[in-house]
Design a protein around this nucleic acid. Structure first.
Lengths: 343, 343
DNA sequence: ACGATGTATGTAAAGGTTTACATAAGGCTT
DNA sequence: AAGCCTTATGTAAACCTTTACATACATCGT
C-alpha cells in the first residue's frame, strides 16, 4: 500500500496485466480503452495508490501544470483575495500555482523567466501593469499570459479587471448627488492605465454635470498613503480648496484622511472622501471609507479561467474582461458643509 | 539566440565541443572540470541562452526545487507578509514556492499530497497547527516540513514562530501595570497550541501578580471576529464583568471592540482591550489596537531557511525557533475607569 | 623506466511518461 | 467467405538530465 517508493505506471500495468501504454490511455483518454480494461486499470491504481509523476509527464509533454503568478508585492492587501480566486480555479483544473514578486525590480522579474525556459510553468498571471522582464526578452516568445487589474503595456495580453472608468464615475456621481461641486481628484497618473481610466471617469462625471474641469484640484500621486497625505498639504497651500476628495485608490484616501485629520478636520462633516478598491482596511478606518469594490475573488477566478482557455485553445477569446465595480457606501461622504462650500 | 525551441544541454555540448556530461559537470560541479573547458562551456551557454530544464533535472534527481506552502486560508491577513519572507529566502537559494489552501477541509489538504508523490515539491511549509492530510497517510513518509506560527500536532515537525507564552505575558503585564485586576481572557482553546500557550502566559502573569484565577471571565473562542463579539454578549449575561479584555488574537479583539461599541461603551475609557498578532488592520481600527507583534517577514525567512537546511542535511538542527514577540502600544489600553473597577 | 595514483573527460543507462506506429482481432459489407 | 474497416492493445522511441563506470592521459615515487 504505502511502500517506500511511489508506484509507477509500470507497477499499475503489471497488476492490471496490461501494457503501460494502456494504463496511460486509461487515465488520459478513457474513451479509447475498453470498459473491462479500464476497470482493471482503475483497480490497480487504487491498489497501488498510483499518481502520475508530474515531472515525467511535463518533461514528455513539454509543458507543466503550473501557473506562475507575479505581483510587484505579495504583501499588498489587494493581492491575497485575488489569490484565492486564482488558486481555486487553477486547482479545479489540475493546475498548481507558483508565486513570485518583483518589488518593481526589473532584474528580479527577469529571474522568473527561467520558469518558462525550463518548462516549469505553462502560463503567467501578471499583477503589474508592465511586463516585468527586460525589453530584449519582451520580444522573445512569451508564455500565455493574462493581466489582472490593469491592462499590460505593450500588451497583446488580455486582462481581467473592473471597469475603472465606470467605477470612478459611480464615485463622482455620488459626490455630485450629495451636492459637491468642487471635487478634487487625488492620484492622477499617466503611468498606470487603471489610474488614467479612473481619471477619465472623474472627467466624464464632472462634464455630465456641467462642471468645468479645474486642474488646480487635480493632483498627481502614486497611490501610496504618503501621496495622499502630501496632496492634502499641497492643496492647503493653494488658493482653492475642494469640498470632497475623490481618490484614485483606498491607500491614497487613507492618506488624505490622515492629512485632514492632522489638521483637525472631521470627515465627513468638513470634507467628503472616496476611495477605490475596497481594501480590507477600508471598513476599519474611521470613518469607514466609502469606496468602489473590486470583486477580487471573482477577478482571480476569471483571470485564471481565461488563462486556462488560452492554454488549450491558443487564441484568447476576449482581450479584456471587465467586471462591474460596485459602489460601497460607508461613512466618509456627506453633503458639503456650509462653511466650506462657501470658499 | 532566441530560437523557437529552447536550447538543450546537447546544443551547448556541440558548440563547446565537449560531451553533455562535461556540460552538466561544468554547471553543477565546476571544480571537477578544467578551467579551459569550463570557459568554453560558459561561452556556449551564453551563446545559446541555455537554462537547464528543471523538469528533466527533477525527474532524474527525484526531487524538485519547489516548496509547497499550505495555509488554511490564503486570504488571511497574517499570511501575505509571511509569504514575502518565505519567497525571498527560497528564491535566494534557487527554490520556487507553490501555494495551496485547505479551507480547513481535510479532503482538500489530501489533494496537495500529490505534489509530493510526483516529486513536484521537495518540502512543505505548514501554516496550520494540524497536518492537513488524512490520518492513514499521516503515518506515510512525509516530506521535510516546517510549521509556521504554531507547533504541528503529532509533529516531529519543527516550527518557527513567536514565543506565545512570553507574548501573552507582555500583554497581561501591561494591563496589570495599568492597574487592571479583573482581566478577561477571550479565545481560550485547547485545539490550537498557540492559543493554549497564550493562555499559559495569561495564567502566569496573573499568578505572578497574586491574582487568583477566575474562570468566569475566561471564555472560549475560535479566533474569529464573531467569537469576540459573542464572548462580550456572554459576559454581559454573567454577574462578573472585567475591566480589561485580553484577546487571543487581533480578530477576536476586533470582535470584542465591536461588541462593546454596540453597547455604547468607549474604549479605552470604559474597557481596555489587547490583541495578538498585529494584523495590518490593527493600526486602522479605532481606537488603534494595542497588541503583540509577530515579526512576520522574519518568521517566514527563518522557516524557509530551516526547511532548506532540512532538505540538505536531512536532520533538523532545531525543533523550535521562537522569535521575540514585541508589545506594540497603541490606544486601546488605559487605567480602569472608576465606575467599572467598582463592580 | 615502470607501476601507481590522480585528474579530466566520455559513454551509456536510468528516471517515468506519452504517443506514433505496428499489430491483432472482431464485425461488417458484398 | 474474403476483404476491409474499426477498435483495442502493445512496442519502442523520445523528452532532457545526472552520474556510475570506463577510458585516457599526465604525474609522481621509486
Amino acid at each position: 500500500m504505502s511502500n517506500s517508493t511511489p508506484a509507477t505506471i509500470e507497477d499499475v500495468a503489471r497488476i492490471a496485466e496490461v501494457s503501460i501504454a494502456t494504463v496511460s490511455r486509461a487515465i488520459h483518454m478513457p474513451e479509447k480503452v475498453a470498459n473491462s480494461t479500464r476497470l482493471k486499470v482503475n483497480q490497480a491504481i487504487a491498489i497501488t495508490g498510483y499518481t502520475t509523476n508530474a515531472m515525467a509527464r511535463s518533461l514528455r509533454l513539454g509543458r507543466s501544470n503550473m501557473i506562475l503568478v507575479v505581483a510587484p508585492d505579495i504583501g499588498d492587501p489587494n493581492f491575497s483575495n485575488i489569490l484565492v480566486g486564482l488558486e481555486n480555479e487553477a486547482r479545479a483544473h489540475g493546475y498548481g500555482i507558483l508565486i513570485g514578486h518583483t518589488q518593481n525590480d526589473a532584474q528580479r522579474g527577469l529571474e522568473y523567466l527561467k520558469f518558462f525556459n525550463s518548462n516549469q510553468a505553462a502560463g503567467l498571471i501578471l499583477f503589474t501593469g508592465i511586463l516585468p522582464f527586460g525589453h530584449q526578452t519582451m520580444t522573445a516568445r512569451l508564455p500565455p499570459s493574462v493581466g489582472v487589474f490593469e491592462p499590460v503595456f505593450n500588451g497583446g495580453i488580455p486582462y481581467v479587471g473592473v471597469d475603472d472608468t465606470e467605477g470612478a464615475r459611480k464615485a463622482v456621481d455620488l459626490l455630485l448627488a450629495e451636492g459637491h461641486r468642487k471635487i478634487a481628484f487625488i492620484g492622477d497618473s499617466r503611468t498606470r492605465l487603471a489610474y488614467t481610466r479612473r481619471r477619465m471617469g472623474y472627467d466624464a462625471g464632472l462634464d455630465a454635470a456641467g462642471i468645468p474641469p479645474d486642474t488646480r484640484i487635480v493632483l498627481e500621486g502614486d497611490g501610496t498613503i504618503e501621496s495622499g497625505r502630501h496632496a492634502v498639504e499641497q492643496l492647503f497651500m493653494r488658493d482653492t480648496l475642494p469640498t470632497a476628495f475623490m481618490c484614485v485608490n483606498d491607500q491614497t484616501a487613507i492618506g488624505v484622511m490622515v492629512g485632514l485629520g492632522a489638521r483637525g478636520y472631521d470627515i465627513p462633516r468638513d470634507f467628503s472622501v472616496t476611495g477605490f478598491d475596497d481594501v480590507p482596511q477600508a471598513v476599519f478606518i474611521s470613518p469607514p471609507l466609502t469606496t468602489i469594490r473590486q470583486p477580487r475573488t471573482a477577478i482571480g477566478k476569471q483571470a485564471m479561467a481565461l488563462l486556462l482557455e488560452l492554454l488549450s485553445d491558443g487564441r484568447p477569446t476576449e482581450t479584456e474582461i471587465l467586471l462591474r465595480p460596485d459602489l460601497v457606501v460607508r461613512n466618509s461622504v456627506s453633503a458639503p458643509s456650509r462653511n466650506w462650500s462657501k470658499r
